[in-house]
Design a protein around this nucleic acid. Structure first.
Length: 486
RNA sequence: GGUACCGUGGCCGAGUGGCUAGGCGGUGGUCUGCAAAACCAUUCACGGCGGUUCGAAUCCGUUCGGUACCUCCA
């Protein structure tokens, strides 16, 4: 059995064979830091976190690069020619890099909450201008780009003579030609489907850099090509991102790599599917655009209550990454219950009755989990196996099944490896312990107070003595009992 | 309109030719001072039509429906 990955390039599952084992290079398109992270950011982050964890588990030395896009993207057609981050900056009268820092920090906080491992390298587009300009230069040199009024465009038609522009997305250049829309700035291009490698900045543009062609900014496909090549080499193993990036972003990356270096950069293209909210696309205009912070706080009108980061993570893992996943309060609450149940049984493992023999076989579960994961990271199946195993634990706890000490130890390590290590889930209950302790002590002190009122001093003293053993001291004051740690 | 993906039980969601997915919910039971949890049993399925096959949720055709992309939007 070996790991298979669905390669979008060939529309089928392929056995994973690294280019230079034991090393694996993986590049994933990261966020544009101009707003708070939402579910659309959580999905790829979690998907490729699982890939990252599993590859390391298999013993590979993985370099995982996930970029931060901090330059040069547009708000929408109404704001054509305006930098996405620049626009936000002017609205709020902030320096662009101040906006970048603010949202980058918030993104990192959300990712930590979701228990997503940090990538090995997290390069920024603004920090790699030289590399991007250099790559544009190479593409021009090789004859696949042209200049128009200080901007550089990729000549798709010319490229397509010897290469296949559309091999990833299944598009044909003839069809693209028919689907032309009238857009500002189009007249600079030879063909509507040509894309910018370098764009001259207009005077209102806040973020711009010098280049051989103009004061401007790089085209939006450039950073991934340039930074992927810089940190992972001209060819590397995995490139990931959302399905929405398939065209034109990743298609254009392929074209750029071939135009610059004469060959593909990526062996396996992986794409996670999209997220819907109550069956609808998530969009600001639809009022179902929910940020991660809003999920965690429950402070959004679509949400009936808050959902913890682990609930979100669990819910996403309960669907395969190539399926769409639909968010609703009902579905989230079901996921939350299931996850809690799973962690309840995990806690039972330490207190199970040890038997001389096992009435059920637990050893096969390891292979089952491996099989599921090897099959294109099928996390829902892994979870299903863990649920099956949890029933066995409950049965042992109930006395209707038995396990040897060795098997109990095995089960424990299985959960540690799979549930906690590879799926990256953990029990959140302990996290608000202090609040819980406050509450518990309140209840206990009330009981003791009513015992004292009933002159049941034996009970009152017993409570005080037992708590003392736990290093908790009770002080009877005029205003009632207080407590503290000794 | 083009390209790609998808349509599974009350809900979410696996499954690619024959063998129980799993979770949540529902129902009955065991346990229990009551409740909860747990355990046991059980309910509900593969959009429609046609085809291939001994046999299809799984393959093929067709139709209907959904989603995403088709813009210098991750």
């Amino acid at each position: 059995m070996s790991l298979t990955i669905y390669n979008t390039l060939h529309r089928k599952k392929e056995i994973f064979e690294p280019i230079k084992p034991p090393h694996v290079g993986m590049y994933v398109c990261g966020p544009t830091v101009y707003g708070d992270a939402h579910l659309g950011h959580a999905r790829p982050a979690i998907t490729f976190d699982i890939v990252f964890r599993y590859l390391m588990h298999l013993g590979y030395k993985v370099r995982y690069v996930r970029n931060i896009t901090d330059v040069g993207h547009l708000v929408n057609d109404a704001d054509a020619g305006e930098d996405k981050i620049g626009k936000k900056a002017r609205l709020e009268e902030l320096e662009p890099m101040e906006v970048v820092k603010y949202y980058t920090d918030r993104y990192h906080k959300n990712m930590d909450q979701l228990n997503i491992l940090h990538p090995s390298i997290e390069p920024t587009a603004s920090g790699h201008m030289i590399e991007q300009i250099e790559m544009v230069r190479k593409i021009i040199e090789n004859g696949f780009a042209y200049e128009a009024k200080g901007s550089i465009y990729f000549d798709v038609e010319k490229y397509n003579k010897d290469h296949n522009y559309g091999k990833l997305s299944g598009r044909k250049i003839e069809e693209l030609r028919e689907n032309t829309r009238e857009l500002a700035g189009q007249e600079e291009k030879k063909n509507s489907f040509d894309f910018a490698l370098w764009k001259k900045a207009d005077p209102t543009h806040l973020m711009h850099w010098p280049s051989p062609w103009s004061e401007g900014f790089p085209g939006w496909h450039m950073e991934c090509s340039a930074m992927g090549a810089k940190y992972l080499g001209e060819t590397f193993d995995i490139h990931g991102g959302g399905m929405d990036l398939l065209f034109p972003h990743h298609e254009s990356e392929i074209a750029q790599a071939n135009a610059a270096n004469g060959h593909d950069a990526v062996k396996y293209w992986m794409h996670n599917n999209m997220i819907t909210v109550e069956g609808q696309k998530m969009g600001k205009s639809l009022n179902n655009f929910i940020t991660l912070d809003e999920f965690f706080s429950g402070n959004q009108e679509k949400l009936t209550r808050a959902y913890s980061p682990m609930t979100i993570r669990f819910f996403i893992l309960q669907a395969h990454y190539r399926s769409t996943v639909d968010f609703s309060n009902e579905a989230l609450q079901a996921a939350e219950k299931g996850m809690k149940k799973l962690f309840e049984t995990v806690k039972l493992i330490n207190n199970l009755q040890v038997s001389k023999t096992s009435s059920v076989e637990v050893q096969p579960f390891e292979a089952l989990c491996v099989k599921a994961m090897d099959d294109d990271f099928n996390t829902p199946i892994v979870l299903a196996h863990l649920f099956d195993l949890s029933r066995i634990i409950n049965q042992v706890n109930d006395g209707s099944a038995t396990l040897t000490a060795k098997d109990i130890e095995f089960v424990k390590s299985l959960y540690n490896t799979w549930l906690i290590g590879l799926l990256g889930l953990h029990d959140e209950k302990g996290e608000d312990d202090s609040q819980l302790v406050e509450y518990l002590m309140g209840t206990i002190l009330e009981l003791r107070a009513s015992a004292k009122v009933n002159k049941d001093y034996a009970t009152a003293d017993k409570i005080r003595d037992e708590l003392a053993k736990l290093n908790i001291q009770i002080k009877d004051t005029k205003d009632g009992a207080k407590w503290g740690f000794k």
